[in-house]
């Protein structure tokens, strides 16, 4: 499981928007069963890097390798197909749909036979599988046919992560998954991330909440003004040194 080849790797990635250099020569490696924290101040380039990794944007230069093979995403869909799931900060759930409908959104199971060709859904089977998938990562949702709008904020975030887990085969990118959550609910989400890691996924965890980063990650990559300024095991940071690295008080 802990092979030397990273499961996902960004090499020398740069991204400019017109004359603005959002990312300059960034390198990042994620191994299977590893949670990598991605931190930095606002405007440090976290979102840009996430967008490049998830296929939403194309880097201006540089390479990306999945399982050691060079890849290029033209659309987010291509990245999803390759096993990279991204959970954006804006909630990625449709609140009026049920839990299982959300988990299977865009990848619905159809009934067998001619009705399936007309697009009829195998709803019972999806309800059951969604429930199983969520339980696997420790998410207990009362009923998978319940509308997401009826769940608490923490439950929603758990379902969103559960959705990503049940579809990702390699990498899960979580953009501020503990934002706007109470302490108990955030704790539940961090527990889920631990479970996800133990399932052998590579996880990229983006957060402003440094205690969460220190608690859940194995390694932390720090971005400042579009450049990677640190990439070290989490054990080498404490909250002061991490903050110092982000702000540039402790530097290169």
């Amino acid at each position: 499981m802990t092979s030397q080849t990273p499961i996902y790797e960004a090499r020398n990635i740069s991204k400019s928007y017109g004359s603005v250099d959002a990312l300059v020569g960034v390198n990042l490696k994620i191994h299977a069963g590893e949670v990598v924290g991605l931190v930095g101040d606002n405007g440090a380039g976290k979102s840009t890097l996430v967008k490049c990794l998830s296929g939403a944007h194309q880097p201006t230069s540089g390479q990306m390798l999945l399982d050691g093979k060079e890849v290029e995403w033209k659309t987010p869909h291509e990245a999803i197909e390759a096993g990279i799931e991204t959970l954006y900060q804006e909630s990625g759930l449709a609140p009026d749909l049920s839990v299982s409908s959300n988990v299977f959104l865009g990848r619905e199971e159809l009934v067998k036979g001619p009705l399936g060709r007309l697009g009829f859904l195998a709803q019972k089977s999806m309800d059951k599988k969604a429930h199983e998938d969520l339980e696997r990562v420790g998410i207990a949702v009362p009923a998978s046919n319940r509308a997401v709008s009826q769940l608490s904020g923490g439950q929603r975030q758990a379902v969103a992560i559960g959705r990503a887990v049940s579809w990702a085969s390699k990498i899960i990118i979580l953009d501020e998954p503990t934002n706007h959550l109470g302490a108990r609910q955030a704790g539940e989400v961090l527990n889920i991330i631990e479970r996800v890691k133990s399932e052998g996924f590579g996880v990229i965890f983006i957060s402003h909440t440094l205690p969460h980063v220190l608690q859940v990650t194995d390694r932390v990559a720090v971005l400042r003004l579009g450049r990677l300024v640190a990439d070290k095991p989490t054990s080498e940071f404490n909250s002061e040194t991490l903050l110092g690295t982000i702000t540039g008080l402790i530097g290169e």
Partner: peptide, 9 residues
């Protein structure tokens, strides 16, 4: 949620 629908592919 059109955003969710789009990001679901």
């Amino acid at each position: 949620n059109a955003f969710a629908a789009r990001s679901a592919g």
